[in-house]
């Protein structure tokens, strides 16, 4: 219940009232990714331009001839959101410098899912971050290719059953550990890397606001529960995100100029992984031994991270 206590009575008063992402979008019922997009828009405000990759958020929001977006938005292809965003940033910079547009500060955002970021889009992302464009890149991670029908990506966690890494008599689903994308971004030595989850809206908004005010590239990794792909009840989308954080599966932290800081929302003591796995159909086939092995890895990874937060 601490979320509610922290959250207090003030939440709506602290949050931008303007809905920059409209009702009528076609996201599945209980989609935490579209909730994340809605909160991101609130945090960043009107003076934002979004370049989106192909994916769930693109198709649910832009059914021609209508759009859910109330901020400028462009979609070009799947693997190039970061490159398109970098071009928008360069274009706006040149036009502002030459006095061809007004000189307000506009933040450019590139966004994609886990597949669009960690698999097919990682080259364009690495390039854009290395070049130092003044932009935010957001990975909305729902841990598989949900838009195309729940195929595995390099963001799919060990043991999860997907349509291309299904659990069966001879398989326990995903055979590989989730790619550690935030660390790959930290290795780019960009000014700001953060993880967020919409289950913690104030932490979420604070980190987006911080990224907005940083001149240079920021990377935000957003954990986005997908009830459809995870085979979990739609009403638990927010509580499931909270469990991912509380079990240490998805720790909330930020890295500013190489300095790690755990989010104050992180619990002192982690909950057991089982409480997070149990309500999700994608993990239902796992044996106790398999869960124990994954638990071991989650604990180890979490300890590694807290060490960095202590010393880096």
């Amino acid at each position: 219940m601490n979320i509610v206590e922290n959250f207090d009575l003030f939440a709506p008063r602290l949050i931008n009232k303007k809905e920059l992402f409209s009702c009528g979008h076609r996201a599945c019922s209980g989609c935490a990714e579209v909730l994340s997009v809605r909160l991101m828009c609130k945090a960043l405000g009107d003076d934002t331009v979004v370049a989106s990759a192909t994916g769930c958020m693109e198709i649910v929001s832009s059914m021609f001839p209508t759009t859910a977006w109330r901020i400028p938005w462009i979609h070009v292809a799947f693997e190039n959101a970061a490159a398109v965003a970098s071009g928008v940033e360069a274009g706006l910079k040149a036009l502002r410098k030459k006095g061809k547009i007004d000189d307000r500060y506009i933040k450019v955002v590139g966004m994609a899912g886990d597949g669009g970021t960690m698999d097919i889009g990682i080259q364009a992302l690495s390039g854009a971050m290395e070049r130092g464009h003044d932009m935010i890149y957001v990975c909305f991670d729902n841990e598989a290719y949900m838009n195309t029908g729940i195929q595995r990506s390099s963001g799919t966690p060990m043991g999860a059953s997907t349509t291309t890494a299904p659990a069966g008599k001879a398989s326990s689903g995903q055979k590989t550990w989730k790619k550690n994308m935030p660390e790959i971004m930290v290795a780019h030595e960009i000014p700001y890397v953060a993880t967020v989850c919409p289950s913690y809206p104030l932490d979420f908004i604070r980190k987006f606001e911080k990224a907005r005010n940083i001149k240079g590239p920021s990377y935000i990794h957003c954990f986005s529960v997908c009830p459809t792909g995870w085979r979990s009840p739609s009403e638990t989308a927010v509580s499931m995100g909270r469990l991912a954080v509380e079990t240490g599966v998805f720790p909330l932290f930020e890295v500013e100029s190489g300095h790690y800081r755990m989010s104050p929302d992180m619990p002192k003591k982690l909950k057991p992984l089982r409480s997070y796995f149990k309500p999700q159909g994608r993990f239902r086939h796992l044996t106790d031994a398999e869960i124990d092995a994954i638990q071991e890895r989650v604990t180890a990874e979490f300890n590694k991270l807290t060490q960095k937060a202590k010393f880096l």
């Binding site: 409209s22 009528g24 076609r26 209508t66």
Partner: peptide
């Protein structure tokens, strides 16, 4: 902007 709201989900 926001014309998706024409569609009632």
């Amino acid at each position: 902007p926001g014309s998706a709201s024409e569609y009632h989900t």
